[in-house]
C-alpha cells in the first residue's frame, strides 16, 4: 500500500512545483493575453541568482531566495518596460515573437556567465534525512517546495480576488479599453503582471534547482514542460494551474509506477499527460477552469 501512497505523494509534490512554475505564465496571460516563451529562462535566472547570492556572496539561502525573487521581479518589470510596453495595442503575434526573441537574448546572456555551461548544486541547508511516515517518504526540499508553492499560490489568489491592484489586473485582462476608460493605467498593470510572474518564476527556479541541481538545460526546459499544465488548467486561471499541475504530476507518477515497464510500454509518463490534455480539450476547449468568452457582434 505504501507503494501507492508514495506515488500519490510524489505526484502531488511534482504537481505543486509544476503549478508554481506555471503560475508565471498564467499571470502574464491573465493580464496581457500573451504566452511568454521566455518563462523558462526567467525560471533559470531565478535559480542562478539565488545560487550566486548564497554561494558567492555568502548570504544565507533563506534571504537570498527572497532577494532573488525581488531581483527577478525588477528584471521582468524592466523587460516589460523596455521591450513590451511599446507593443501595447499591437497584434498578439508580434508580442509573442518578442518573447521568443527575448528567450534567445536571455539564453545568450546566461551563456556569458558560468551558469550557461557549468553545473552547480545548492549547499545543503535542510536535513538530508527524508521524512518517512509508514514507508512513505518526502525530502525536506520537496516539503519546503510544496509549502512555498501553497503560500505563493494562496497569496496570488487572494491578491487577484481581493486587492484593488489585482482586480485592476483582471479588468485589464477582460477589456483594455474599458479599463482605461475607468482610469486604470494599462501599462502599469502589464508591468506589474510581468514583475509578479518574474517573482513566481524565481521561486520555482529556486525550488527546482534545489531538487535537480543547477543545469541550464534542465531548468529552462521547465518553461516548456509546464505549457500543457497551463493549457489544461485554462490559460488565465490560477486555480486551473494548481489543479492541472497536480493532475499532471499524478498522471506522470502513476504512469511511471504502473504502466511503464509493463504491457510493453515505456515512457508513458511523458506522453500520457498530452493524451489526457487532448481529451480534456476536446470536451472543454478552454481548459478546466479557463474563461469561455462570448463576444456579441
Amino acid at each position: 500500500m505504501s507503494y501507492f501512497f508514495q506515488i500519490v505523494v510524489s505526484g502531488v509534490v511534482v504537481g505543486s512545483i509544476y503549478a508554481l512554475a506555471a503560475l508565471g505564465l498564467v499571470l502574464v496571460y491573465k493580464s496581457s493575453r500573451v504566452a511568454n516563451f521566455a518563462h523558462g529562462q526567467i525560471i533559470a535566472s531565478g535559480a542562478f541568482i539565488t545560487y550566486a547570492l548564497t554561494v558567492w556572496a555568502s548570504i544565507p539561502i533563506y534571504i537570498s531566495f527572497f532577494i532573488s525573487m525581488l531581483i527577478t521581479f525588477l528584471l521582468a518589470w524592466s523587460v516589460e518596460r523596455i521591450f513590451l510596453r511599446r507593443l501595447i495595442g499591437e497584434p498578439i503575434i508580434s508580442v509573442i515573437m518578442v518573447t521568443i526573441g527575448l528567450a534567445s537574448i536571455l539564453d545568450g546572456l546566461i551563456y556569458l556567465t558560468p551558469f550557461g555551461t557549468k553545473n552547480f548544486s545548492f549547499p545543503l541547508f535542510l536535513p538530508a534525512e527524508p521524512i518517512s511516515i509508514y514507508g512513505v517518504s518526502i525530502s525536506w526540499t520537496q516539503l519546503v517546495g510544496v509549502i512555498i508553492t501553497v503560500v505563493l499560490i494562496g497569496g496570488f489568489s487572494w491578491f487577484f480576488k481581493k486587492s484593488t491592484v489585482g482586480i485592476s489586473m483582471r479588468a485589464v485582462s477582460d477589456d483594455q479599453f474599458a479599463s482605461m476608460s475607468v482610469g486604470i493605467s494599462v501599462p502599469s498593470v502589464f508591468g506589474l503582471a510581468w514583475a509578479t510572474a518574474g517573482l513566481s518564476a524565481a521561486a520555482a527556479g529556486g525550488i527546482i534547482g534545489n531538487i535537480t541541481g543547477l543545469n541550464f538545460d534542465t531548468l529552462h526546459a521547465f518553461g516548456v514542460v509546464v505549457f500543457p499544465v497551463v493549457i489544461l488548467g485554462g490559460l488565465d486561471s490560477i486555480l486551473g494551474a494548481v489543479v492541472a499541475g497536480i493532475i499532471m504530476g499524478l498522471i506522470q507518477q502513476f504512469a511511471g509506477g504502473y504502466l511503464d515497464g509493463n504491457f510493453g510500454l515505456n515512457g508513458t509518463g511523458e506522453v500520457l499527460p498530452y493524451i489526457i490534455l487532448l481529451i480534456i480539450l476536446l470536451i472543454k476547449p478552454h481548459g478546466l477552469f479557463g474563461i469561455h468568452e462570448i463576444e456579441r457582434v
Binding site: 508514495q6 506515488i7 510524489s10 509534490v13 511534482v14 512545483i17 509544476y18 520537496q142 527546482i208 531538487i211 535537480t212 534542465t218 526546459a221 521547465f222 514542460v225 506522470q252 507518477q253 502513476f254 504512469a255 511511471g256 509506477g257 511503464d260 515512457g267 509518463g269 511523458e270
Partner: peptide, 9 residues
C-alpha cells in the same frame, strides 16, 4: 524524460 521526480520508476 525531463523528470522532476523518479520515485515511481
Amino acid at each position: 524524460g525531463n523528470d522532476l521526480d523518479n520515485t515511481a520508476m
